[in-house]
Simulated scan of single mutants.
Amino acid sequence: MARELTQLELLKELSGVAEENVNRHLKITRDWNPHDYVPWDEGRNFAALGGTDFDPEQSELGDVAKAAMITNLLTEDNLPSYHRVIAENFSMDDAWGHWVGRWTAEENRHGIALRDYLVVTRGVDPVALEEARMIHMTNGFNPEMVNVETVDQMRHEGIEYAGMLHAVAYVTFQELATRVSHRNTGKACDDPIADKMLQRIAADENLHMIFYRNITGAALDLAPDKAITAVRDVVCNFQMPGAGMPNFRRHGVLMAKHGIYDLRQHLEEVVQPVLRKWNVFERDDYTAVGEAARDELGAFLDKLAEDTVKFEEMRDRALAREAKKREAKAS
């Protein structure tokens, strides 16, 4: 039986892949400036500087777009939490450290652009937004990718828990999910400036996803059992990074109802494409431990597909009721 690699050994073995993908990213990414995506001529002073404070009538965003923009921005705001998780699980040396810094700097652009756009256009209440930011960042975020029982089980089976595998697997799915959410939010804003900005942000998220997807793919080749266990844990316990922010559930429901990010998108546009890329269900290099983890993952996906159909049936009924109410009011 092959020797189980420790986290440090995994980082060393994967350092060449990390360097290759950092170089790939730097070659194909395009730097951009947040200020180029903000309609500054729409801006004006608030009351503290002799102007007028926010009034809901000033916003041209619909309720769905507001909920999505706030959720997306607060997610980006909590960057320090994600930086901490990545930095704690990666080495800060060589390509790993360079990527942590580069990724953090690129993600920070997203929050800058989103906030400037919303404040300048008065798309949402800036006071409520700041209050929510303070709450969300104070609480922080740590993705619940694995629980104590899973770690104990892994150790019982002779597999050392490697947090970096859970971290890279999580951000693979999270970056792709965020890309989908940003892209659909841009469409919902019904504003070509917002749409162009969110397309730019979504393109960044896609490149970030590719980096993490490639690292996880290499880890599956290097340590199949350990990596598929991490993938199983992440997929079966996945939460968007905005979980825990004020009004997250209400905003999430609204976004799901109106096609910003729902169960089918999560399954068909995020989870399934990544698993296919990794060839998860066709691999033959697992031991019994890895096969068991893959089987659990497959069963979870079957259940998720069933839940997706149920959700869509409920959503369609709810939207039909809302449409009837609007027709009744109009008549």
Score class of each variant (00 low, 15 high):
244 G>D: 02
239 Q>M: 10
238 F>K: 02
274 V>D: 01
187 K>F: 12
183 R>P: 09
248 F>H: 12
260 I>Q: 04
240 M>I: 13
187 K>R: 14
214 N>G: 08
177 A>P: 01
234 V>D: 00
204 D>E: 14
198 L>C: 04
248 F>A: 10
194 A>G: 04
199 Q>V: 12
266 H>S: 15
264 R>Q: 15
222 L>G: 06
214 N>P: 05
227 A>G: 07
203 A>I: 15
234 V>P: 00
225 D>T: 02
240 M>A: 12
192 P>Q: 12
190 D>Q: 13
224 P>W: 00
212 Y>N: 05
187 K>T: 14
233 D>T: 02
224 P>G: 01
186 G>T: 02
273 P>Q: 01
199 Q>H: 15
180 V>C: 10
193 I>L: 08
214 N>Y: 06
266 H>P: 06
261 Y>L: 13
241 P>N: 11
279 N>G: 15
271 V>I: 06
183 R>E: 09
203 A>H: 15
225 D>L: 03
253 V>D: 11
260 I>C: 07
277 K>C: 09
245 M>I: 15
230 A>D: 02
213 R>M: 14
212 Y>D: 05
276 R>H: 09
270 V>A: 01
276 R>I: 05
273 P>M: 01
198 L>H: 01
216 T>S: 06
223 A>L: 11
260 I>L: 11
224 P>N: 02
216 T>D: 04
229 T>D: 06
223 A>C: 14
254 L>R: 10
240 M>H: 06
215 I>A: 03
269 E>G: 07
244 G>M: 03
253 V>F: 10
243 A>P: 07
224 P>H: 03
196 K>W: 09
268 E>L: 13
232 R>M: 07
229 T>L: 15
221 D>L: 14
234 V>W: 00
196 K>Y: 09
213 R>D: 14
203 A>N: 15
216 T>F: 03
239 Q>R: 09
274 V>S: 06
189 C>F: 09
194 A>H: 00
264 R>F: 08
225 D>Y: 03
208 H>E: 07
219 A>G: 04
178 T>V: 15
266 H>V: 06
248 F>Q: 08
272 Q>G: 04
187 K>L: 13
254 L>A: 12
183 R>L: 12
251 H>L: 10
238 F>E: 00
249 R>G: 13
273 P>I: 00
185 T>G: 04
229 T>N: 09
222 L>E: 05
197 M>Y: 08
234 V>E: 01
273 P>C: 02
223 A>I: 09
254 L>G: 10
265 Q>D: 08
261 Y>H: 07
228 I>Y: 02
232 R>W: 08
225 D>I: 00
239 Q>D: 14
